[in-house]
């Protein structure tokens, strides 16, 4: 179990780093959404189903959608 958690967290941090350094903003947004989604999974592990649900629906889905829509109105590359 703990190894699984460690793997998840490393993936999450990796997603964060990708989001930070990627020149393609769409890619960065997707990576950030991914990190958010993995956080939602971690919330389940931490016995917080309410928060997990909120994070999954808002952090992972809605925020990503907002970013994508905003990118559509501006430009994609940094």
């Amino acid at each position: 179990m703990i190894y699984f958690t460690i793997i998840l967290i490393s993936i999450m941090l990796l997603c964060g780093i990708i989001a930070a350094i990627s020149k393609d903003l769409l890619f960065a947004v997707i990576a950030a959404g991914m990190a958010s989604f993995i956080t939602a999974i971690l919330f389940v592990f931490l016995q917080a189903p309410d928060v997990a649900m909120a994070e999954a629906s808002i952090g992972a889905a809605l925020v990503t959608a907002l970013f994508v829509l905003a990118l559509k109105k501006t430009k994609r590359s940094e």
């Binding site: 964060g16 903003l25 950030a32 990190a35 956080t39 952090g59």
Partner: peptide
């Protein structure tokens, strides 16, 4: 995006 990462 950075702000949202800090949030998370």
């Amino acid at each position: 995006i950075g702000i949202s990462l800090i949030n998370t």
